[in-house]
Design a protein around this nucleic acid. Structure first.
Lengths: 207, 207
DNA sequence: ATTATATTTAATAGACCTATTAATTGAATG
DNA sequence: CATTCAATTAATAGGTCTATTAAATATAAT
């Protein structure tokens, strides 16, 4: 509402909309409110994005990428052991969620509201994970064959790992409120859980 | 909309409202729609519950109980080992979610919308978990002291256990859509994950 | 300076929503 | 049968929301 004169109105609208959609979800955020927070006329929101749906989809697509692709875009950690790679995946996924704590709820709520949206995004995301996934899968199977890791599929493993991460950030608002803990304590809790998640997953893999 | 003549209108409204709130959330469900589905006048919804908030809270409070108390209402499994109790908790929590798959999203969304609501319910739920929790806690510490289970707090353990359960049901709509799996396959996936969750948690506890 | 183009605003149509009020129907009771 | 109370409906006030339209303003280009 202040330094916004620097950037374009379109950009301001986008950023404010993103913040509000993440805070309150699609249904409870109105284009009227977005405009009010930006400090512009409500019609301007529709001038740039025509419909509220358009605006939301623009933001959502990018957020969706962030949410799902992250796991598979782990640079080249080629020389790491499977266990170290897994540790890295869990931690970097955790850090991404820590930086975007409201992301899981937005993704899950939106897909619950419009399941058909999954298909649209499935296409756009195709062809990326395949190779990295297979590589990781081979490495896991080698470890299993060597008796170092218990019998488990990569999908099951990743699902469990990412589940605990996601649930933490979904439940933290409730937990914090219920336990009346302050900002700082919440920070400690989060860091503690990060360690715990790694320990937890790695420990569960032992043959 | 048919056999409803048997039960009272008030009950019909409550049940329909529950279904719609679970399907679409608070914001996207209108008293108009509830009345339409029940087959009564919209004013009747307000006649019995005065406000939409009242109606929602009535339902929500009961659902909240279901969601949180379950863990602590495990009858008397006194003679079971800690591991067996834990297995029972995970499985019975899982079964509750399987019977109420949309519950987690409702709870989490609602607390995100109105954080102050946590306090209201915190009071109402007080005094129940304490004893069972402490008993379980003692048992865990005994196991740890005996070197049978790694160092971990009961809270951390329960949080991890319930996290994977919750995430599964939150993510299943997305997964099913993305992987284009049918009803039956989804059933298999759920049962498979139930086993996996137990294995997973118990395995992660080994010293 | 003028014209074209892009940005922004004011105004409003049209839909829907919550909540209330007053009137109507129905059932039970004296 | 008349009366009373509960259940139900019709009607509507008052609000907000999305989206559009036409007018106003700013920006740039000739």
């Amino acid at each position: 509402m202040d330094i916004k004169s620097e950037q374009s109105m379109e950009q301001s609208i986008l950023e404010t909309a993103e913040r509000l959609f993440l805070e309150k979800g699609f249904a409870l955020t109105s284009t009227t409110e977005i405009a009010r927070e930006v400090g512009c006329n409500q019609a301007l929101v529709h001038y740039y994005f025509r419909t509220k749906d358009n605006l939301f989809n623009t933001i959502f697509e990018q957020k969706f990428r962030l949410f799902f692709q992250h796991v598979f875009e782990l640079g080249n950690l080629d020389n790491l052991s499977f266990t170290d790679k897994l540790k890295h995946i869990i931690e970097s996924h955790f850090d991404m969620l820590k930086a975007n704590p409201r992301l899981p709820l937005l993704i899950i709520s939106e897909f619950s509201r419009r399941p058909e949206q999954v298909d649209v995004l499935k296409e756009k995301l195709q062809g990326i994970p395949q190779k990295l996934f297979e590589k990781l899968n081979d490495q896991l199977n080698t470890e299993i064959a060597a008796g170092k890791i218990r019998q488990i599929t990569l999908l099951d493993l990743l699902f469990s790992a990412l589940s605990v991460n996601i649930s933490l950030f979904l439940l933290i608002p409730i937990i914090s409120q219920a336990m009346s803990i302050n900002e700082a304590q919440q920070g400690f809790l989060i860091e503690h859980r990060k360690q715990e998640h790694v320990t937890f997953i790695l420990n569960s893999l032992r043959a």
